[in-house]
C-alpha cells in the first residue's frame, strides 16, 4: 500500500496503473465524476448550474495536482468567474417549471447509446501511456517536447514555457483563437438581434 500515497508522476512505472493511483487522485476523480453525474441528472436547471460550478472546482484541483497550473487557472477564472454568471443571466430570462422530482428520469436507450460510445472510447485507454510513464511520447520522443522545454527560455526569454509556446512558437494559432473569441462576441450580437453590447 506504500504506492497508494506516493508522489507518482516522476517515478518510473513498475506496477499496474490502478495500483498507482494516489488517495488525492482517487478522491478528486470521485468528486468530479459525482458532480458531472449530478449536473447531467439534476431536474432543476439552477441546481445543475450550481453543481456544475462545483464540478469545475474539482477539475481545477485535479489540473493543479497534475502540474498544469495554466489550465487550472483558466478553469478557475472562466468557470467560477464567467460561466456560472452567464448561465444565471440566461436563466433569469426563462420561467421556472415546478418540479416534484429532484432528478431527471433516465432514458434507457440514450444511456445505451452513450454506453456504447463510452465503451468504444474505453477500448483506446489501453494504448494511452500512464501518467509519468517513460513510454509516453513526451519522454520517448524528446526531440519535440524536450526541445521546447530547453529552448523556449533561450529563444524568447520567457520563463513560462506554456506562454512561450502559445504566444511565440504557436503564435498564429493563438491569433486564430483570439479571433474566434472576437467572432463569438459578434455572433452573440447577431443571435440576440442587437447592435450594441452595452
Amino acid at each position: 500500500m506504500t504506492g497508494a500515497i506516493a508522489l507518482a508522476p516522476s517515478a518510473p512505472v513498475q506496477v499496474p496503473v490502478v495500483a498507482q493511483i494516489t488517495a488525492i487522485e482517487a478522491s478528486l476523480l470521485a468528486f468530479v465524476v459525482l458532480t458531472a453525474l449530478a449536473t447531467a441528472l439534476a431536474r432543476d436547471v439552477l441546481a445543475a448550474v450550481i453543481v456544475f460550478g462545483a464540478y469545475s472546482l474539482g477539475m481545477a484541483a485535479l489540473y493543479t495536482f497534475y502540474r498544469a497550473p495554466d489550465v487550472a487557472l483558466t478553469e478557475a477564472a472562466i468557470s467560477a468567474g464567467v460561466t456560472t454568471v452567464l448561465l444565471l443571466l440566461t436563466l433569469a430570462k426563462t420561467t421556472r417549471i415546478d418540479h416534484d422530482v429532484a432528478f431527471e428520469s433516465v432514458n434507457l436507450p440514450a444511456v445505451g447509446a452513450v454506453g456504447i460510445l463510452f465503451g468504444g472510447l474505453l477500448l483506446t485507454m489501453g494504448d494511452i501511456p500512464a501518467v509519468g510513464s517513460p513510454d509516453a511520447p513526451v519522454w520517448s520522443n524528446p526531440e519535440v517536447s524536450q526541445w521546447y522545454l530547453s529552448e523556449s527560455y533561450a529563444q524568447t526569454g520567457v520563463e513560462n514555457t506554456v506562454m512561450a509556446v502559445l504566444a511565440a512558437f504557436r503564435g498564429f494559432d493563438t491569433f486564430g483563437e483570439a479571433v474566434v473569441v472576437f467572432a463569438g462576441g459578434i455572433a452573440a450580437l447577431i443571435v440576440l438581434h442587437r447592435e450594441v453590447f452595452a
Binding site: I24, A26, S27
Partner: peptide
C-alpha cells in the same frame, strides 16, 4: 488534501 476532498464530496450532498 485527499481528506478535504472527501469532505467536499460530503458537501456535494447538500448542493445536490
Amino acid at each position: 488534501a485527499a481528506g478535504f476532498t472527501v469532505l467536499a464530496i460530503g458537501m456535494l450532498y447538500r448542493a445536490v
